[in-house]
Computed example of a mutant assay.
Amino acid sequence: MAVAGVATAAELGFSVPEDVSVVAWEDSALCRLVKPWLSALSRDSAEFGRMAARELTVLLDGGPDRTVRVPVPRLIGRDGTGPARES
């Protein structure tokens, strides 16, 4: 979606990151295949999936629903983000 956002911004005459910053929800190789390279959130997707599966299994087995803390994603800053400007 972030890559499509860069393309759409360009179609509308905006430049990334001069006019708009773009951050991908999840880091992938695709974030480094576009120009400018996109900043992204990095998380352990496999561990996140394991945690979700464990919690779903507990619910399916009749256990209580509960709030679970998950690790906070880390921001990987790249060329897709620029400084904030006043309009």
Rank of each mutant, 00 (worst) to 15 (best):
E11L: 09
V20R: 10
G80Y: 10
S87R: 15
V72I: 13
L60W: 04
A4S: 07
A2P: 14
G80R: 12
E55Y: 10
E18R: 03
T57N: 00
W25Y: 11
S39W: 09
S21F: 00
A29E: 15
V70F: 09
W25M: 10
A29V: 02
V20G: 09
D65H: 09
V22G: 05
T57Q: 03
D19H: 01
F48N: 02
S42W: 11
E26S: 13
S28M: 08
D19G: 02
L56E: 07
C31N: 08
K35V: 07
G77N: 05
P64D: 14
M51W: 06
A40Y: 11
W37G: 09
S28N: 01
P83Y: 03
L56A: 14
L38N: 06
T57C: 05
E55Q: 15
A24G: 02
G5W: 05
C31T: 04
A84W: 14
F14N: 05
E18V: 08
A84G: 14
P17Y: 08
A7P: 12
A29I: 04
A24P: 05
R78I: 02
R66F: 10
L38M: 03
R54I: 11
R85I: 06
L75P: 01
M51Q: 03
V58E: 15
V72D: 14
G13Q: 05
A29H: 12
A46V: 12
V23F: 07
T8F: 13
E18C: 01
R66S: 14
M51H: 01
S87F: 14
I76L: 03
F14M: 00
V70Y: 08
W37K: 15
E18Y: 03
E18S: 07
L60C: 06
A9E: 06
W25G: 00
V22N: 08
D65W: 04
A53E: 09
D65F: 08
P36I: 01
